[in-house]
Each structure stands twice: as C-alpha cells, then as structure tokens.
Amino acid sequence: MRDVPVPVRRCALLCGALVLLTSCGWGAGEDGDDGGLPAVPTGVTAAAGSATTVHVMWHAVGGVETYEVYRGGTLVKEVPASERMVDVTRLRPSTAYAFTVRARDADGRLGPRSREVRATTPAAAGDDSAPTRPGNVHGRTAGSRAVQLTWSAAKDDRDVVSYDVYQGDAKVHSVGGDQTATVVTGLRPGTRYSFTVRARDAADNLSPAGAAVRLTTPGFDDGHATAPTGLRAASHLADGAYYLDLSWTPPPADDPVTEYQIHLDGRAATSLVYGADAPRDRAEYSFYTGREAGVTHRVKVRARLADGTWGGFSEERKVTTGGE
C-alpha cells in the first residue's frame, strides 16, 4: 500500500516519557444539549510554535461545520470541521496569549466557548540558522489504530521551540521543544503510514526532516464500513456528448467527507473535492465520458477518510451511454 500523503488529524502527545496529550484527539463528537447548539470543544491546548506563532488543538465536536478560534475576544481563525488544530500566526514575541474555541453547525448556530488556554511566545531571535534534523527517529504500532513515534533532540544555536510531525508531506501536529515523543491515533487497521519530524526554532527556521518512519498497523480492514453506499448511475446526452450521472450516500463519519475518487472501467478517472458544503446525506456528480452511444461503463466510488487514507469502494455499477 502506498504511503499516505494526507494528514492524520487526531494525535496525542507523550509528555516526558509517555504521558498522553489528548489535545489533538478526534474522539467521538458530542451533541450539544443546550437548545440544539453545538457542544463545547474539549481538550483544548495551546503551545508556542515560534516567537510569532501558537499551535492550538482541540477534540472533535459532532455535527459541526466549522470551528472558530479566538485570541482573547477576537476571532482569529475559522477552521473546517475536518481539522482540529491550527497555527495562529503574526503574534508578538515574549507575549502571553489566551485562546478559546467555539463550534458552529451548518445552520450557523454557534456553541459555547471552550475553556480558556494560555501560551507565551518566546523572545525573538535574530537567527538565520535552522536546527539540525531530529535524529534516531523510531516508531512502533500501538494496537491497530495508533503508532508511537520517538526521536532524539535536534540542536540549535539558540533553542528548539517545537517539533512538527508530518504524515507524508503534510503537517499533522506540533509538540513542544522539550518533547521527543508522540502518539498518533485514529488510524486504520492493516494500513501503511509514513511519518517524519522536523524541528523549529524561535525565528521560525525549520530543520530538514528526520528519517521517515514507515509503519503498517496490524489487523485487517475489509473496507465495508468506509465505503459509500447506494451508488446509482445513469447517462444523459448534452450537446452531442454523453455524461455519467452518479449519486451515492457518503460513508458514516463524524465529519463530512470532502473528497471522493471515481473509478471508471477499472481505473481512477476523476477526483471530486468539496469545500465546507460537502454533502452529508447524498452526493451527486456528473462527468463527461465521450460521444459514442452504446458504450457500457463500469463505475465505482471511494472516499478519502479523515486519517488520509482511501476507504473501501462502493458496489460497482454498469451503465450504457444512450441506454434507457
């Protein structure tokens, strides 16, 4: 299986030896019980990433469309429901900041604020030298849905402020500069993943990546639970060309699925990427297949899941251009 280039979005930090930080965990969302409002985001933490940035993380809230991140009483970031972390930038060095998070649902209802968390940015440094790459990077699976990563500390002419953890080429988490371990959770059984670690100093200089850790979680995933269901396929003629019209029910997930891949006649034909308006109940898509009538196509669909991997395929359907 190929390495996964898309971010894993729930992780927990080992403090010291192996103390789990649940700030970036996904977990099952909670439904709000305050007149139907979204629930309060929990597990909120904040940590300085450099002299001008702070990394804020939180647990998922079910049934929401976006999260709002506040610095004091000021809204500074809006984050889609598929993410539970953000880097707040353009901050002042040597300054204490307070952050809260709120969840907003598809109807625009805004839930209560989370508890307030604080972080202090370090002093600015006139520094053009990046830290050395983290060394001795190791990993091991921790059950079928988590991996543990460890590394040796990078060196800097001043101080390493944070470490960025990447899945493939995308940043998925940050930990403090005094931490050299993390646990990444929310993975799928029987799936191959690749992780790297980079060090960052107060001047935002980023080290080269340490050696990649490639791990395959144990177990087996037949894909049924993650496959789109109820796929329907038909064709229509427009301007002398035939199009396939597809509709399906997204796989069950805490958050809307925002990306699908459509396979036509045994090959990946096109990708479909939604924004914040990703459908929850029924997805639809139409695409060009050619000008010849009487051609029979086989089509199936799969979704990119929140952990960055592709889920199982839907049932395959056959459709003939120009057919009844």
Rank of each mutant, 00 (worst) to 15 (best):
Ala278Ser: 10
Tyr288Met: 02
Arg267Leu: 09
Pro252Gln: 10
Gly177Phe: 12
His224Lys: 11
Thr185Pro: 00
Ala269Trp: 15
Val175Asp: 01
Arg282Thr: 05
Ser271Thr: 15
Tyr260Glu: 01
Asp239Asn: 13
Tyr260Ala: 01
Val299Pro: 02
Thr229Arg: 14
Pro279Glu: 12
Ser271Gly: 14
Arg214Phe: 02
Val301Gly: 01
Phe220Trp: 11
Asp222His: 09
Val184Gln: 08
Val197Glu: 03
Pro208Gly: 09
Arg200Ile: 06
Gln261Val: 09
Val172Gly: 14
Ala181Ile: 03
Ala278Cys: 05
Pro256Ala: 14
Gly275Asp: 12
Pro228Cys: 05
Trp310Gly: 00
Arg298Met: 10
Ala199Lys: 03
Ala181His: 03
His173Asn: 14
Gly266Val: 05
Val172Cys: 14
Glu259Met: 10
Ala211Met: 06
Gly266Ile: 07
Ala303Met: 08
Asp222Met: 04
Pro256Val: 12
Val295Lys: 11
Ser286Met: 06
Arg291Leu: 03
Tyr193Gln: 06
Arg304Phe: 05
Asp204His: 12
Val295His: 09
Asp201Trp: 13
Gly177Pro: 06
Val197Asp: 05
Thr270Asn: 05
Val213Thr: 13
Arg302Gly: 00
Ala253Trp: 11
Phe313Pro: 00
Val299Asp: 02
Thr182Glu: 15
Gly312Thr: 04
Tyr288Cys: 00
Arg192Asn: 07
Asp307Glu: 11
Ser207Leu: 04
Asp265Val: 02
Pro256Ser: 08
Thr196Gly: 07
Leu246Ser: 03
Gly308Glu: 09
Ala203Asn: 04
Trp310Thr: 04
Pro256Ile: 06
Asp204Thr: 09
Asn205Ile: 00
Thr289Tyr: 07
Gly240Arg: 08
Leu206Trp: 11
Thr182Ala: 15
Leu244Lys: 04
Ala212Cys: 00
Leu272Ser: 05
Trp310Phe: 14
Gly230Met: 06
Arg302Ala: 02
Tyr274Asn: 07
Val197Lys: 05
Gly308Ala: 10
Gly311Ile: 08
Ser286His: 10
Ala303Glu: 03
Trp248Phe: 08
Leu264Arg: 13
Thr229Met: 07
Gly219Arg: 02
Ala227Asn: 01
Ser314Pro: 04
Asp201Ile: 10
Ala278Asn: 10
Ala238Ser: 14
Gly190Ile: 08
His297Glu: 09
Thr196Lys: 11
His297Asp: 05
Gly230His: 13
Gly308Pro: 04
Val257Arg: 10
Leu231Glu: 03
Thr185Gly: 15
Ala199Val: 09
Phe195Trp: 14
Tyr274Cys: 01
Val184Cys: 04
Ala233Ser: 12
Val172Glu: 12
Ala225Glu: 12
Thr229Lys: 14
Thr191His: 05
Glu315Asp: 15
Tyr288Lys: 02
Gly219Phe: 07
Ile262Cys: 01
His224Val: 12
